[in-house]
Amino acid sequence: MRPFAYERATDVRSAVATLSERPDAVYLGGGTNLVDLMRLGVVSPEMLVDVTRVVDATIEESAGGGLLIGAGVRNGDLTADPLVRGRYPVLAQAVLSGASGQIRNMATVGGNLLQRTRCSYFQDTSKPCNKRRPGSGCPAREGDHRNLAILGHSSSCVATHPSDMAVALAALGAVVHVEGRHGPRTVPMPGLHRLPGDEPDRDTVLEPGDLITAVELPELPFATRSRYRKVRDRASFAFAVVSVAAALDVADGVVRDCRIALGGVAPVPWRAELAESALRGAAATAAEFGRAADIELAQARPLRDNGFKVPLARNVLVGVLTDLAEAR
């Protein structure tokens, strides 16, 4: 690991000011991904600004009837919170299905959103990777990509976004509060993460110096009927092969409203907007769920070895929606 300076931020504004001036500095939250990437040599900052003591770490009800979650809230505390568990079970389940108990106790909400892909090539500095070293190439396209993207990828990058939490937040339409060089602003989800295009090194729309300070969940009464289902290669402690976050509002057998996002299939948490519009007003039946899934997945462009994710995502989506429709 390259030597670096460590500084503990005294307040959010000064932290942002420091990073705005120093492009070689990065924020340190829980460190679970950053420290690992530094050890791998994937990132080599010259300065860490520890923001864990200045970024809000509380969860409170927001003015709009939703929840305001401080970006410094540890993932473990997020899943323990009664308001989150009661009103947005999909979020609690998503976070609980990510990583391990130990890592959830360290990782922060802000850091979780900014996780980097776990694509093998990205993590191996002895090999090319456009996300790590722009212009060097993408060996995953012809190499091992069984667990990479089927949606939203580009010729320069086929990586997936690893976060489970982000998938639930994308489904719920969370709003990310950011403190930047020019003051505070909000970024809606989806919208924080960006598709790779020909700039795969930029995972998000954040600018240098930007610090995530909170995540706001909108009021969404029917989210009490929501669920996260994660398909993975082992029963626990593994990244998603495919995941589905969904909330469903059904009355008299008809879908009034829904929120759906997919994980493990795209470079971003994938909000399934086409499926959502196809379902609004449709009968809450497995057939309609399947039709909606097909409409969404018609955009899929699977690679040589990951075509199985298309029917897998369809099955899981139909299964989750069916369970939600049947739940009382």
């Binding site: 776990r118 093998s120 191996d124 002895s126 090999k127 060996p139 012809e142 190499g143 091992d144 290669d233 082992r234 029963a235 626990s236 402690f237 593994a238 990244f239």
Partner: peptide
């Protein structure tokens, strides 16, 4: 392409975890 075992850590090379 590169001639090595690619998935060389315990997040990529899965061994049974307790839940399995």
């Amino acid at each position: 392409e590169f001639g090595d075992y690619l998935n060389r850590d315990l997040a990529q090379y899965h061994v049974a975890a307790c839940a399995d």
